[in-house]
Simulated assay, not measured.
Amino acid sequence: MNEVISTILNHRSIRHFKDQQLTDEQIKTIVSCAQAASTSSFIQAYSIIGIKDMEKKRKLAEIAGNQEYVAHNGHLFVFCADLSRHELIGEMEHKDVIPSIESTEKFMVALIDASLAAQNAAIAAESMGLGICYIGGIRNKLDEVKELLKTPERVIPLFGMTVGYPEKINDQKPRLPLAHIYHEEEYEQDKEVYMSQLQEYNQVISSYYHDRSSGNRKDRWSEQMAKMLEKQTRMYMKDFVQKNKLNKR
């Protein structure tokens, strides 16, 4: 096993960081690695906003559900789907690019491009001995996030990423079994097979929580997911995205 694979397989979310800021060189390296990610048709439909200002960090931590580690870390990145520069390109080249920019397809491209870039950044940071945690909670109040970060139309802040020197390293959460994720030739549709795999995974996760909480917690994964999905959250998102002139066609 090489070092890259070892770094990837050793991933865990870090939520406690030392009071040590990343250097500008570290930030530049992480962003450069993000830019090295694959991008559909070379469109590069994303932007990254780095947050050093503590007041902005505190505000984003509040928006994300009062998560302290959003404020207290080595650096905070916000990854955005971004097709605003492509509207400008249309103006520069005198081409009508708006129908394409406003399509669901190009919105998906922007989401995928941003996600690929972010995962490259995460692996780069972890290879440097740093820890990371993705922050989807900024989508709780995207109007406030856009105002805080001064993002224009056709730019959607998707998620944050806290990066820093780990103060505390948690146990790694067991993932779904490979057989449940990986299909060959066609999608497995036998519900009995799926249910059996989920039951086995439930036992693994229940044991994980039991051991970490001295027996005070033993929720099953399917139970956890069902409770989470039963609660409707961020249901404003479709209107918000379309208001920002994306995913309209």
Score class of each variant (00 low, 15 high):
I112M: 15
L246F: 07
I49Y: 14
S207C: 02
I48H: 08
E185W: 10
Q172L: 04
Y46E: 10
A37Y: 12
Q224N: 05
L148A: 07
L9T: 14
D82F: 03
E223K: 08
E25H: 11
G50V: 09
A122Q: 13
V97I: 15
E25W: 06
I135E: 02
K59S: 08
S213C: 04
K28P: 00
D24E: 09
G215M: 08
A121M: 11
S13K: 04
K141N: 14
L178Q: 10
S41C: 09
I14Q: 03
V78N: 11
A110L: 04
Q20P: 02
T7I: 11
K218Y: 08
N216T: 09
G131L: 04
G90A: 03
M54S: 11
C80E: 06
I8G: 06
V204G: 08
H11N: 15
I51G: 02
I123N: 05
L246M: 14
G137E: 06
E188Q: 12
E200D: 13
E200C: 09
M108W: 11
I43K: 14
E192Q: 14
H180I: 03
I30A: 10
Y209P: 00
V78L: 14
E153I: 14
G129N: 13
D143S: 15
Q199F: 10
A122S: 12
S222A: 08
I49D: 09
E147W: 00
E147R: 04
E93Q: 14
T23K: 04
N170G: 08
S206R: 12
S13A: 14
Y182T: 05
K150W: 00
G74H: 00
E147C: 00
N247F: 09
I205M: 15
S115Q: 05
S206P: 09
Y46I: 05
L22R: 00
G65H: 00
D82A: 07
M237K: 07
D239A: 14
K227C: 10
L149E: 11
D53C: 04
S47V: 05
N244Q: 09
L142R: 15
Q224S: 05
H75N: 06
R15W: 08
N216M: 13
H183V: 09
I101W: 00
Y208K: 14
A61K: 10
I169V: 15
A45H: 01
L9R: 11
R234C: 12
S41Y: 10
